[in-house]
Design a protein around this nucleic acid. Structure first.
Length: 237
DNA sequence: CGAGTTTGACCTGCGC
DNA sequence: GCGCAGGTCAAACTCG
């Protein structure tokens, strides 16, 4: 099955200024691109407050994209190293960095999807990776929220295997969509990671998976770190 | 019988 | 303050 996957990196709202360091660590999210890939220009988004990148890379299974995400969330340093290695081998990196000058809030996931405007009709044979940031002025009290990462995947299956065990705790029909949104929590006791799964209203073939938080443990089908690293490398080539 | 799912009720934030 | 919409809870249910 060919898949289309988009990655969106959201970020959190934190109460305390002293958490800035952690914020910047979490914002330091590099998405590696192979050197032979042409990236479309920034800013081709309907919302001027969004800056998006979307790119076609290779025909791979969407489930591996979720493994990639799990690594990005759980081992950001390792993921950064991987991104750097792409850079040193002539690849391209997308850096999402937080400006200390701004107050932040992150828009709803649905605001950020670039893919629906791109790849017009030819999204059957590729994985696309995109990143989008929405910034808006905070108002009132700042709210604590975990870092969020999102995938858009073309799949018949709603819940893709990302190596972690999830327990469904809710389902909700979202306004103006025919498809319900499902809410999952990691089954690990000490882990507070959540994910939302929904289908894109414009294209029900697309599954949107939003992760919130970081796993405090390894996936249930534990991959060796070195194996993960090499698989990540293979994913892009 | 335990783990996971379903689903209606409830909670919370936000805009008006 | 009110209503709406999204998110969560928890009891009932299903399944292996």
């Amino acid at each position: 099955m060919m898949s289309t996957t988009n990655i969106v990196n959201h970020h959190s709202l934190f109460d305390e200024e002293q958490q800035d360091h952690e914020i910047s660590m979490q914002m330091g999210f590099n998405i590696p691109f192979p050197p032979n890939m042409t990236l479309p220009p920034l800013g081709n988004c309907h919302d001027q407050s969004l800056k998006g990148i979307s790119a076609i890379i290779s025909p791979e299974a969407a489930t591996f994209a979720e493994t990639l995400l799990a690594t990005a969330v759980q081992k950001p340093r390792e993921f950064e190293d991987l991104a750097s290695s792409f850079g040193s081998s002539g690849g391209q990196n997308l850096d999402l960095n937080r400006s200390r000058m701004n107050s932040w809030a992150w828009g709803d996931v649905s605001d950020c999807w670039m893919g629906k405007r791109n790849n017009g009709g030819d999204n059957h044979n590729h994985i696309g990776v995109s990143a989008a940031i929405k910034m808006k002025k905070m108002k009132g009290r700042r709210k604590v929220r975990e870092p969020r990462f999102c995938f858009k995947t073309m799949s018949d299956i709603d819940v893709l295997d990302d190596g972690y065990k999830w327990r469904k705790y809710g389902q909700k029909v979202v306004k103006n969509t025919q498809h319900p949104r499902s809410y999952y929590r990691c089954t690990q006791d000490s882990c507070r990671v959540k994910k939302r799964v929904e289908r894109l209203a414009e294209d029900p073939r697309m599954v949107i998976t939003t992760y919130e938080g970081r796993h405090a443990h390894s996936p249930s089908n534990e991959l060796e770190e070195s194996q993960t690293q090499s698989e990540l490398a293979n994913f892009f080539w």
